[in-house]
Design a protein around this nucleic acid. Sequence first.
DNA 1: CCTGAAACTTAAATCCG
DNA 2: CGGATTTAAGTTTCAGG
Lengths: 164, 164
Amino acid sequence: MIHKKENVTDLPLVLDEKDMGILKLLQVDAKMTIRNIASQLNLTTTPVYERIRKMEQAGVIKQYAAIVDPQKIDKGLTVLCYISLKEHSKKCGAKFIREIVAFTEVTECLNISGEFDFLIKVQVKDMNAYREFYVNKLGEVDNLSHTQSIFVISVIKATHQMVY
Amino acid sequence: MIHKKENVTDLPLVLDEKDMGILKLLQVDAKMTIRNIASQLNLTTTPVYERIRKMEQAGVIKQYAAIVDPQKIDKGLTVLCYISLKEHSKKCGAKFIREIVAFTEVTECLNISGEFDFLIKVQVKDMNAYREFYVNKLGEVDNLSHTQSIFVISVIKATHQMVY
DNA sequence: CCTGAAACTTAAATCCG
DNA sequence: CGGATTTAAGTTTCAGG
């Protein structure tokens, strides 16, 4: 996690080509050194250093993270679960969100358009683990109207890369 | 990206509590030093260093990445797009996948159970950009039967954290 | 806003017990 | 695996254009 200075501005930082070049590289390899980045962008370390610092403080770079392979840590099953609520009041929605977000199995929760209210992505070991989650965790959440589970047969692509 | 040694084994590495502890920390902050990790886990640098190296080579840690905030780089709109194919032969499926994966707007592509064949996640600036993608890119892909777009109203949770 | 070099700081990697 | 050492490296700063 980025440790911002006290006076975080989060001002709408305008990014130019050089910033994008830096992001492009750091997105793929966060451990790339400033020197290396500088040489690839035909710059020196100073501007690269300062641009990275700015992007960290502006929240453009949210985090430096190790990406773990789910398959290798017994979390090889991904399930998408659609959820509709009974009550849509602000209060009830907030309560639902608080409960859902707390589940470590839920790696994603999206408020969506269409027939359902939410889509959550659940990451578990296998079908047994999903049943366990579905019955004992999701099943204990208030205010659920109906749900639908979609199973992921295979992950074709999954990236956080957004700068090209 | 992790630079593995030549003889990559990718053997089913058995992870113990200490490995999980390391992953847990690196998932949140890839820049955490080995010393820091060691002290938090009541270990010395040697075992931590070696465990990390093993997990990198085994592919448990796939990558160290800077996580960028989509909102801050003009990619604030997320759309889920369901896709059904006409032809489901291996050859046609592979062609579809090749084309879809090449689109930089597609940050995720899942082969799913249920009514549709695939779910792709599209990350763009705004609705105009999505229309542009939908018409000129997705629309040019062969073998599509029908599609359905679901718009993400808000992202409640989005994490790659899987070790707790 | 950049260059270039220098100074500083810190971590990675090794070795022996 | 602990502990310390060594070596190497990256980060950060500064003057100057």
